[in-house]
C-alpha cells in the first residue's frame, strides 16, 4: 500500500538527484478510502516529524483539501482525526509518483510503489 504516511518519507534516489527530489508528485493516482483505527497518541507523536508542506500539497493533488496551510500549534481532536484520515485512510492503488527534479517515474501497481532503479541510475 502507499498512503501519505509513506509518501511523506519517500524520496527520489536516482544517481545525482539530491536536490528537489522530495516530495514525489502523484500522477494518474487512483485513490481508495479504507477506514483505519484512530490512534491519537501515534498521530501526536508522528506530527513533529511530518514534512508539512509536502503533505498538504500531496493531499491536494489527491483531491483532499482538509489540511491547513500551516501546521497548527495546538492540535485538537478534530484536527488529529483529519490528519489521521489524510495519513492513513487514503490508499493510492494505481498510478505513479514522479520526481520533480529528474523526472523519474516510480509506478504504483496494486497498491505497491516500485522504487527499484535500473542499474545505470543507481548511485
Amino acid at each position: 500500500m502507499v498512503r501519505l504516511i509513506t509518501h511523506n518519507l519517500l524520496a527520489c534516489h536516482v544517481k545525482g538527484c539530491t536536490t528537489n527530489n522530495f516530495p514525489l508528485v502523484f500522477q494518474d493516482a487512483q485513490v481508495e478510502i479504507h477506514e483505519a483505527e484512530f490512534n491519537e497518541d501515534f498521530i501526536r507523536g508522528f506530527m513533529p516529524k511530518i514534512e508539512w508542506k509536502a503533505l498538504v500539497d500531496s493531499a491536494r493533488q489527491l483531491g483532499d483539501t482538509s489540511l491547513p496551510e500551516e501546521q497548527p500549534e495546538m492540535a485538537d481532536d478534530d484536527f488529529l482525526k483529519t490528519l489521521h484520515h489524510v495519513l492513513l485512510e487514503m490508499h493510492i492503488e494505481e498510478g505513479a509518483m514522479v520526481c520533480q527534479n529528474c523526472g523519474h517515474v516510480y509506478p504504483i501497481s496494486n497498491g505497491i510503489p516500485n522504487m527499484l532503479l535500473a542499474e545505470h541510475e543507481i548511485g
Partner: peptide, 24 residues
C-alpha cells in the same frame, strides 16, 4: 486480531529511497 493493511514498498535494501533521517 486485526484486518489492518500494511505499508510495503518494492525496493532494494542497498539503495536509500527515503528522505535522509526519515525513520526513528
Amino acid at each position: 486480531d486485526t484486518n489492518c493493511i500494511r505499508e510495503v514498498v518494492l525496493g532494494d535494501a542497498i539503495e536509500t529511497c527515503w528522505r535522509v533521517s526519515a525513520f526513528d
